[in-house]
Structure formats: structure tokens, C-alpha cells
């Protein structure tokens, strides 16, 4: 009876959650881009180019200048509307810094960023669980102190600095790995082993920058679980200590991690921006910095929209996963 009741109701809050977020997303995107277009009026940025879409690619200088003069009078809101009109038809405009349609730039660069982020995330979570679990199951021990201090220090180290140190040690001093890029300059083809060699440092540095957070979350949750009644009850039942620690202390601590992963997407993107810049990784994150430095409004606008979408979807995935994994959420108190 209880089970039946639950499954009947389970759909509705979840659906409401998903629908709510998906409805919020366009509003958020509209507001963010509108603010960008309005602010850009007073700056050296050229939103007109963005509003023109890919037509700008086929125009010569004087025509463009004329268009710019005419468009300059139309105001930010019209430009914004024109940009969205084009964007919804797949035309994201021309990137002035990359000299190519924005859509092409993103299509080429996005896989590099997603790959970097995905592998780093997996490594960071695995490492965080390992370190946090080890420290959390031995509260107050030297392992706990070392792990705690180490995690805090790593967290306090900016990823761009860790990256530079890694470049100096492994690329310059030891000469084991390349200093940057994703492929060797002398080859045009993308060879898996070559990419792997180039990816080692960026992936490890990004993973290291995200690891402390997961580690500290797991450590605290493990400590809490360890102090709770279930562990004592398990001990009194005669469960061997190592199993007790793994199953009854660390495992409950992994549940909060599920939400944490999704919530960390913005931090992961922040880390990716810095790591891609340090290692000249050809992803979208370093392109964001490029577009900002080189006054490339079309690209910056498109990348901001892309980032927002990724983050919102990441948060949503985390919330959904949490509800699916933990049946307790959303049942207590309605």
C-alpha cells in the first residue's frame, strides 16, 4: 500500500521540478544576453556584428561600415532581438577573433572541453572519495590531519598556478610531457597517443583543483556517519571493522556527493577556463577568454549562453539523480 502510494505520487514533484527548471532556462538566457547587449553599447565591443549574423562574413568593409552606422541607431533591444532571431535559426554570427562562423568554432572546440572536464571530474571524484574516506574513517589520526591540511592547501592553490608549476616540473625540468596544446605542432592528424600525452597535465591539474572539495565533503560526511548509531549497532552485531567502515560509514557519505557533483559544474568550468588557458588547450573555455580579450562579442555571447545551459542542466541532473538515488528526499513532510 505504501509502495503503491509512493510510485503514484513520485512522478509529480519530479516532473514539476524538471518543467520548472526548463521553463526558467529561456528566461535566464534572455535576461543574461539582454544585459550583455545593453552593457556592450558603451564599450569597444561591436554587438552590431553579432546582430548581423553570418551575413557579415560576405560583406566588404564599406558595406559593413554602412550597416554599422544604420544599426547603431537601432538600439540594444533591437540588436538583441535580431541576434536571437538568427540564433534560433542556427546562425550564431561570425567570430571576429577566430575569423569563422561562431557555430563552427564551437563545434570544433566543444569536444575538447567536454573531454577534459569529464575525465577530470571522474578522477577528482574518485580521488576525493579515496582521500576523504581514508581521512574520515580515522578522525583525529595523523592521516586525517595530513589529508585535511593537504586538501585545504590544494584548495587554496589557484589552478593556474598549479598548472604553471606542473609545466615547469614535468615539461621544462624533467621534459617528460609537452608544455601545451592538444596535438604536436609538426603533425596535422589527431593521433590518440599524442593527444593522450598532451592531455595528462591539463587533466591532472583540473582534477587536482576539484579534488579537495569532494574530499572534504566525503570526509565530513564519513565522520558524521561514523559517529552515528548505525555504526555502533553494526559493531555490536559483530561486523568486521574494515567492512563496517566501508559499508556503514563511507557508503552513506557518497550520497551527498551525488548532489555535489552537479553543483560543482560551475566550478569545473571556472577551472577549465584557467587550465585551458595555461596549457593552450583548444577548447571553448579558453575561447571565452580570447573572445573577451579580443572584443569578439558574437563568440562571447554564444559561449555565455552555452555555459548557462550546461550549468542549469548540470544542476537539474544533480537534483534528479538525488531524488532517484535517495527515496527519502521529497517524501518527508510532503
Amino acid at each position: 500500500m505504501r509502495l503503491l502510494d509512493r510510485s503514484a505520487r513520485a512522478g509529480s514533484p519530479l516532473t514539476r521540478l524538471v518543467l520548472g527548471r526548463l521553463l526558467l532556462l529561456p528566461v535566464l538566457l534572455a535576461v543574461v544576453t539582454l544585459v550583455m547587449f545593453v552593457l556592450a553599447q558603451q564599450t569597444p565591443f561591436d554587438p552590431v556584428l553579432a546582430a548581423l549574423g553570418e551575413r557579415a562574413l560576405t560583406m566588404d568593409g564599406p558595406t559593413l561600415e554602412a550597416m554599422r552606422d544604420r544599426a547603431g541607431d537601432t538600439g540594444a533591444v533591437q540588436q538583441w532581438a535580431a541576434w536571437w532571431g538568427n540564433a534560433l535559426q542556427g546562425d550564431l554570427g561570425v567570430s571576429s577573433s577566430q575569423r569563422a562562423p561562431v557555430a563552427t568554432v564551437i563545434a570544433q572546440r566543444l569536444p575538447w572541453t567536454l573531454g577534459l572536464m569529464a575525465v577530470s571530474l571522474v578522477l577528482a571524484v574518485a580521488g576525493g572519495v579515496l582521500v576523504g574516506g581514508l581521512a574520515g574513517t580515522r578522525p583525529g589520526s595523523w592521516a586525517d590531519r595530513v589529508a585535511g591540511g593537504g586538501l585545504l592547501s590544494v584548495q587554496a592553490a589557484p589552478p593556474f598556478w598549479t598548472g604553471l608549476v606542473a609545466v615547469w616540473v614535468f615539461a621544462v625540468w624533467l621534459g617528460w610531457l609537452p608544455t601545451g596544446g592538444a596535438t604536436s605542432p609538426d603533425t596535422d592528424a589527431v593521433e590518440p597517443f599524442d593527444v593522450l600525452r598532451h592531455a595528462v597535465l591539463p587533466v591532472l591539474v583540473l582534477a587536482l583543483s576539484q579534488l579537495p572539495w569532494f574530499g572534504l565533503v566525503v570526509r565530513d560526511a564519513t565522520r558524521d556517519a561514523l559517529a552515528g548509531l548505525p555504526v555502533r549497532a553494526g559493531w555490536a552485531r559483530g561486523i568486521p571493522t574494515s567492512r563496517l567502515l566501508r559499508q556503514h560509514a563511507v557508503r552513506p557519505a557518497l550520497l551527498p556527493l551525488v548532489t555535489v557533483v552537479g553543483v560543482r559544474v560551475p566550478e569545473l568550468i571556472t577551472g577549465a577556463v584557467l587550465v585551458e588557458t595555461v596549457f593552450s588547450w583548444p577548447g571553448v573555455a579558453s575561447a571565452t577568454v580570447d573572445s573577451a580579450l579580443r572584443l569578439d562579442f558574437s563568440l562571447l555571447a554564444a559561449l555565455t549562453v552555452l555555459t548557462t545551459v550546461i550549468v542549469v542542466l548540470g544542476n537539474l541532473a544533480a537534483d534528479v539523480a538525488y531524488r532517484v538515488v535517495d527515496p527519502r528526499v521529497g517524501q518527508r513532510d510532503g
Binding site: L28, L295, T304
Partner: peptide, 16 residues
């Protein structure tokens, strides 16, 4: 919902 660094980049880029 926005990555703070990207938002910061946009703000600084637009304001100089």
C-alpha cells in the same frame, strides 16, 4: 547558475 569566473570575465570585458 552561472560560473562566476565566466560572469566575471563578461563583466570585466564589458566594463574594461
Amino acid at each position: 547558475a552561472l560560473p562566476h569566473l565566466v560572469l566575471g570575465i563578461v563583466i570585466v570585458a564589458l566594463l574594461g
